[in-house]
Simulated assay, not measured.
Amino acid sequence: MGGSDPESAVSSEQTPAPDILESLIESGLHEIEREPIGLLLSGFSAGLDIGFGPLLMAVLLTLSDGAYGDLGTELLLASAYSVGFIFVIIARSELFTEHTTLAVMPVLDGQVSFDKLTRVWGLVWASNIVGGAVFTAFIVTLMPNLGVASPEAFGTIAHKLVDHDLRWLFVAAILAGWLMGLVAWLVTAAQETTSRLLIIWLVTASIGILHLPHSIAGNVEVLFGVFVSPAVSVVDYVMFLSLATIGNAVGGVVFVALLKYGHVVRGGG
């Protein structure tokens, strides 16, 4: 009597890599062909929603006041950081750092031009940044009345990103873009919402606990610092946003899009 091979059973439940790639290409084509106003509205919504992560971080940092110790506090903050990403990705709003992998796939497959890719990147990035800025301004205006997060907490979060030399900022941004590219790949491979939630939490909490610069979430984090901390300047913000954006794009394109596409079309998976 032949029993079923456990390894084969597990393999049959996994989404084959060629299917993941095909799904990413289809999704990328859909987004590239969308009307600009649709991309802008979705990107603006993502910029707003992702701000809840940094806001919750500031609230937890204020309320905990170190009561959980360094490790406990860092784990709490990393989990709070992931909340904004869960809101954005599960809602399928447009996030620039996902598009550094998603929108690149149809270009690598020869189905769209590089000009269309840069158009999508520009629209999504700009709307993400504006959405984050609006969220930040809204919260800073309400902050004295909310009474749940101190200005010092927002300043502490901002300094975690800007108190580094520029070379570290760029290299760390590559790592963040790499991880976000993996989110796009893994969420496409996952077949259940629970699995997707776990993947998003695991990857984005890793970005949070490592304090890696994510251009869109970090836009909110550092802008909070500009508003409430005299030690965080507009120059700090501009340098952060520039290097984080370029580094995120390099990480998503080189370490996920190019490598995943290359190995799958050559028989991988």
Rank of each mutant, 00 (worst) to 15 (best):
M180T: 07
H211D: 14
L197T: 10
V183T: 12
L166H: 10
A184F: 06
A217T: 09
Q191Y: 02
G218F: 05
L202I: 01
D165R: 03
V228E: 09
A205M: 15
L166D: 15
W168A: 09
L166K: 08
L175W: 11
T193S: 13
A184Q: 12
V162Y: 06
I174Q: 00
L186W: 11
L182M: 14
F224Y: 12
I209K: 07
W178V: 13
I199L: 09
F227E: 00
K160M: 10
A190F: 12
F170Y: 14
V220Y: 04
M180P: 06
E221M: 00
V162W: 04
V226N: 04
L175H: 10
Q191N: 14
L175F: 14
R167F: 00
I216Y: 00
W185D: 00
E221Q: 00
L197D: 04
A173D: 15
I209P: 09
G177W: 08
A205Y: 14
A217F: 10
A190C: 10
T188G: 01
L182K: 03
A184L: 03
G218M: 09
I209Y: 13
V183P: 04
H211L: 06
V162C: 06
A231Y: 06
A173H: 11
D165E: 03
E192W: 07
L223A: 06
V222F: 02
V222M: 02
G225L: 07
A205H: 13
L182P: 13
W201I: 14
L175M: 14
A176C: 15
L166Y: 13
A231V: 12
A189Q: 05
L212R: 06
T193L: 14
V226E: 08
K160T: 13
N219S: 04
S215R: 05
R196Y: 02
P230R: 01
T194K: 05
L161V: 07
A176I: 10
A217P: 04
V183F: 03
L223C: 02
F227Q: 01
F170Q: 09
L223D: 01
I216M: 00
H164D: 02
L179A: 09
S206I: 11
A176S: 15
V226P: 05
G208R: 07
L202M: 11
